[in-house]
Write a protein that binds this DNA or RNA. Structure first.
Lengths: 197, 197
DNA sequence: TTCCGATGTATCGGGCCGATACATCGCAAC
DNA sequence: GTTGCGATGTATCGGCCCGATACATCGGAA
């Protein structure tokens, strides 16, 4: 999942690790608290080894004008390669079980602006089904095992159930909007210009 | 975290892995979907190696009457040891940063019926602070970075913000109930009989 | 010039997951 | 009666990600 997010961010502009992390927070802050460096740097190395990203000397950043006055030896700027873009296009087009769980869904949703509408719909519907299943599971527990559970465990289930119900409603709104060609804020989009790839 | 949950369940009654997993689903179903066997069995072995749980021959289950008619060779029943109970008492009494994140809080909450009230309050308050921080982070993003983010990313932040606000309200209710000596369902408890350890 | 907090890169051990592989049981279909 | 199959049940493996930790540099305040 981190791969996907990193590729997505680097396809907008080159960045170094620290920057990447901050962008991940603003883009995925509602999904996961913050990406650990213990995940980030190894992932970066993995992506580089796979040829999907490369180190861009820091003088590549803006132009030759700004550069190595202060030789900031640390700071490795990464940029995406052609292969990386290809891989990103592959990832952003997929809509399978991997895109239905919390983490997968969140990351894919964060890049919905660059996902084509058919894929958006399939992900939204798959996610809805997934959450509905969770919801049914909790309803079952509440209906079948309520008497042998304590008040706190029940409260936890009730709270979880409520959250699931609310997410289903949210997803339903989003699906309805997609079908009627609206952006998530309710504004009508003239045409679907967001074609991935 | 799994250690804690397993110790808690086994302190109620001996169980084998499969059973344990089902119990974990009904107790923690609102927190995590389902515990993977790839976590469960290694954890069981780890706990056993640490002397916190032991294998109980399946004939220990009910009595000698039921047992090895059909020699169910699989099925390893585990039970908690005295050391395990001690460890569980330690874990259920702690209220630090580990108990404030999603997973930690959920598991601890699931065992609140066996946690003393002072600890419950500290955990609830710590969790509230944690969620408030997340909420503030999302508000900042929405206030400061809104114009450079697309509609979908914004919608994700909005949804996350709403969820955080709701959780804070939920926690506040729980805290108020604790302070006034009520169980989470609102029923007045005559006294706080749930003293851990 | 000394200290300190923000910036910045990196590794290590360990927990947990998904995929996968087996083996057995009870039962239904043929 | 045996064949097949889904539920029950235990177990491992590779891999992602996290938290803790360790450094190093920079800019500015004391």
């Amino acid at each position: 999942m981190l791969d996907f997010a990193i590729l997505g961010l680097l396809s907008e502009s080159p960045m170094h690790g620290y920057e990447l992390r901050k962008e991940l927070v603003t883009k995925l802050g509602s999904i996961r608290a913050a990406i650990s460096y213990g995940s980030l740097y190894p992932t970066l190395r993995r992506l580089q080894a796979a040829g999907l990203i490369t180190e861009a000397g820091q003088s590549d950043r803006g132009s030759e004008a700004v550069p190595a006055l202060t030789s900031r030896r640390g700071r490795v700027v990464y940029k995406i390669t052609a292969e990386g873009k290809e891989r990103f296009a592959e990832l952003i087009a997929q809509a399978g079980p991997e895109t239905y769980d919390d983490a997968g869904f969140g990351v894919h949703f964060a890049f919905f602006a660059r996902t084509d509408r058919a894929t958006r719909l399939r992900i939204l519907e798959g996610r809805r089904r997934r959450v509905e299943e969770r919801r049914e599971g909790m309803r079952d527990v509440l209906a079948r095992a309520a008497e042998r559970l304590d008040a706190y465990t029940l409260e936890l289930q009730r709270h979880g159930l409520e959250a699931a119900e609310r997410e289903v409603r949210w997803l339903e709104e989003l699906i309805a909007n997609e079908r009627s060609g609206r952006a998530p804020d309710g504004a009508v989009k003239p045409r679907d210009e967001n074609q991935g790839g």
